[in-house]
Amino acid sequence: MTDDCLAGASEAVPLCDTATGYAQAFHALAVARNGPGRYAEFAQRPDLVLAIGPAAAA
């Protein structure tokens, strides 16, 4: 990957829910912009530690 490349992925969705998949990928892409790996996946129910932040890991 290059430094100017970002990737965001949605959950697997049926073809009839393409708009939902696109929205999920768009949100994941916004997260990827600020992440160290420049890649993010949309999660319907994210890990609580990830949602709250590093302080919750303790």
Rank of each mutant, 00 (worst) to 15 (best):
M1A: 13
M1V: 12
T2K: 09
D3L: 09
D3W: 04
D3A: 09
D4E: 10
C5D: 05
L6A: 02
L6K: 03
A7W: 05
A7K: 00
A7V: 10
A7T: 08
A7C: 11
G8F: 02
G8P: 01
G8E: 00
A9H: 03
A9E: 09
S10G: 03
S10M: 01
E11G: 07
E11P: 02
E11S: 14
E11W: 01
E11T: 14
A12M: 07
A12I: 10
A12V: 11
A12L: 07
V13H: 07
V13R: 12
V13N: 05
P14W: 08
P14K: 05
P14Y: 04
P14Q: 01
P14H: 02
C16L: 07
C16K: 15
D17F: 03
D17M: 11
T18K: 10
T18M: 12
T18P: 00
T20F: 01
G21P: 10
G21M: 02
G21Q: 07
Y22F: 09
Y22M: 12
Y22D: 03
A23L: 12
A23Q: 14
A23F: 06
A23K: 12
A23V: 09
A25F: 01
A25L: 06
F26H: 14
F26K: 13
A28E: 01
A28T: 05
A28Q: 02
A28Y: 08
L29R: 06
L29F: 06
A30P: 00
A30N: 11
A30K: 13
V31H: 13
V31D: 13
V31G: 06
A32L: 03
R33H: 07
R33Y: 08
N34D: 12
N34E: 12
G35A: 15
P36M: 15
P36K: 15
P36V: 15
P36T: 15
P36C: 11
G37M: 13
G37K: 13
R38A: 08
Y39T: 14
A40E: 08
A40F: 05
A40I: 06
A40P: 00
E41T: 13
E41R: 14
E41S: 13
A43D: 14
A43I: 00
A43Y: 12
A43E: 15
Q44H: 12
Q44R: 13
Q44V: 11
R45A: 10
R45E: 15
P46M: 01
P46R: 04
P46L: 01
P46V: 00
P46N: 01
P46I: 02
D47A: 04
D47K: 04
D47S: 05
D47M: 02
D47I: 02
D47W: 09
L48T: 10
L48W: 09
V49L: 01
L50Q: 10
L50R: 10
L50E: 14
L50I: 06
A51M: 09
A51P: 01
A51C: 05
G53S: 06
G53R: 04
G53D: 03
G53Q: 03
P54C: 01
A56N: 04
A56P: 00
A56T: 00
A57G: 02
A57F: 01
A57Y: 05
A58V: 05
